[in-house]
Design a protein around this nucleic acid. Structure first.
Lengths: 227, 227
DNA sequence: CTGCTTGCTGAAGCACACTCATTTAGAATG
DNA sequence: CATTCTAAATGAGTGTGCTTCAGCAAGCAG
C-alpha cells in the first residue's frame, strides 16, 4: 500500500520534473525553439519518456500554459474576493490581470500559440477558465443592480480582455511600465459607460428635475392675475 | 529595352506565383502545416527557387501576411474617406475592420504568428500600417474639437483594436455573424466615453438648459406685479 | 524462481526546411 | 553567328529534431 503510494508519487514527481523543465525551455525561446532533447535531459529522463506523459511537443506545451493560467486564475479569485463593491472588484481584477500579463509576459505570449493552433484566443483563455472570474464579477454586479443587464456578457469580456491584452503588449513593446494606472483608468471609463448606460437611469433624472422645476415656477405664475 | 522589361516582368510574375501559392498553402493550415515543397510545386518552380526570393519559410509567410494587411489598409482608407464626421468615420472603420476580420479570419489569425515571433501584436499591426488609418481619424477628430485631447492615443488604439479583435474571434468561435451591429454599438459607447469624457462638454449642457428654463420663468414672473 | 505488468530507454526512422554544385537560358561582345 | 559571361533555376543531398518502437529493468503475484 505504501508501496503503491510511493510509486504514484514517483510518477507525479517525474511529471513535475518534466513540466518544470519544459516550462523553462519554452519560456526561453517559445514552442519552436525549445528542444525535446533538452527538456528530457533537464528533467533527467530519456527522450522517449516524454512521450509517455504527453502525446507530443504541443501537448506538453499546452500543459505548461494551462498550469500557468490556473495559477493566475487562483490569484485573480483571491484579489477579487478581497473586495465587495462590484466596481472595485472589476478595477482590482483589471489591475491584477494587467500586472500579471506584464510580469509573466513571456508565458502570456505563449498563449498565442494556443490561439492559432486551436480555436482562437478567447476560446483559449475561456477553456483556461480565467474569464470565469470576470464573469462572476459581472454577474454579481448585475444581481446587485449596479450594472445593467442589457449588455451582452460575452461582449463585455472582449472589451475587457481585448483592451487589457493589447494595452499590455503595446506598453511592453514600448517599455513603459508606469502606464498601468492610465490604462486601468481608461478601461474603467469605457467599461462603466457600457455597464451603466444612461446616467438618467441611476439618477432621479436630470430631465425630470428640470421639468418639475419649470412646472413649479409655472404654478407660481398662475397665482398672479395677468398684468 | 523591351527585353529588360520582359525579364523583370518575368521575375515579378514568378514572385507573384510564389506568393499566391504560398497564400493558399498558409491559409489552408497555417505556418507549420504548409510545406515548402507543395508551394514550390503549385508555383511551378523548384524548391530551391523559393529561397532565391525569400530567405526562409518565415520570411515568405511574413510577405503573405504583409500583403494582405496592405490590401486591408487600402480598403479602410477608402471607407473612412467616404465619411466626414469623425464619429461616423470611427464607426465606419470599426464596421469595416470587424467585417474584414470575420471575413478573412484565417489570414487574420495568421497575424498572430508575427505577434509572438516578433514584438507583439500591436507592434505587428503597427508595422503593417493599418493602425495609421485609425490614428488619422482620431487626429482629425481632435483638431476639429470633437474628441478630447486628453486620452492617450496608444491606449485608444488598444481599446479599439483589442476589443474588435477579441469580439470578432469570440463571435466566430460561436458562429454568430449577426452580432456585428451589437459589437459596434458597444464599442462606440466605450470609445466615446473615453473620447468625450464629460457629457456637459459636448451637449448644450444640462445645467445650462436648466438655467435657461428658470430664466424664462423668471421673466414670466416679472411681468406680474407682486401680489 | 518464473512469469507478468508497468515504466523506461535511446538508437533508428522519418519528415522537412534548407543548401549548393551543377545546369540552363538569355544578354553582351566580337 | 559563335562565344563568352552572368543571372537565374534546379533538385538531389544534408542536417536537424520530433517521434516511434523493440527491447530492457524492476517490482509484484503465484
Amino acid at each position: 500500500m505504501s508501496r503503491t503510494q510511493t510509486r504514484r508519487e514517483k510518477l507525479a514527481e517525474k511529471e513535475e520534473a518534466i513540466l518544470q523543465a519544459a516550462t523553462k525551455a519554452f519560456l526561453l525561446g517559445g514552442l519552436k525553439a525549445a528542444r525535446m532533447a533538452e527538456i528530457a535531459k533537464a528533467a533527467q529522463v530519456a527522450e522517449g519518456t516524454l512521450y509517455l506523459y504527453y502525446r507530443n511537443k504541443e501537448a506538453l506545451f499546452e500543459a505548461v500554459v494551462a498550469r500557468h493560467w490556473d495559477d493566475l486564475r487562483r490569484g485573480a479569485q483571491k484579489v477579487v474576493r478581497a473586495e465587495t463593491d462590484p466596481v472595485l472588484q472589476l478595477e482590482t481584477l483589471a489591475s491584477y490581470t494587467l500586472d500579471r500579463i506584464m510580469g509573466d509576459r513571456k508565458l502570456f505570449e505563449l498563449t498565442l500559440y494556443l490561439a492559432h493552433a486551436g480555436e482562437g484566443l478567447t476560446a483559449a483563455t475561456d477553456r483556461l477558465g480565467y474569464v470565469r472570474v470576470f464573469d462572476g464579477v459581472i454577474e454579481r454586479g448585475r444581481s446587485e443592480g449596479v450594472f445593467t443587464a442589457s449588455a451582452n456578457p460575452k461582449l463585455l469580456r472582449d472589451l475587457f480582455f481585448g483592451t487589457l491584452d493589447y494595452a499590455a503588449r503595446s506598453a511592453l513593446a514600448r517599455g513603459e511600465d508606469a502606464a498601468s494606472s492610465r490604462i486601468i483608468e481608461t478601461l474603467m471609463t469605457a467599461m462603466l459607460a457600457v455597464l451603466q448606460p444612461r446616467a438618467e437611469d441611476r439618477d432621479p433624472g436630470v430631465e425630470e428635475r428640470l421639468e418639475r422645476a419649470v412646472a413649479r415656477l409655472e404654478a407660481v405664475a398662475e397665482r398672479y392675475p395677468a398684468g
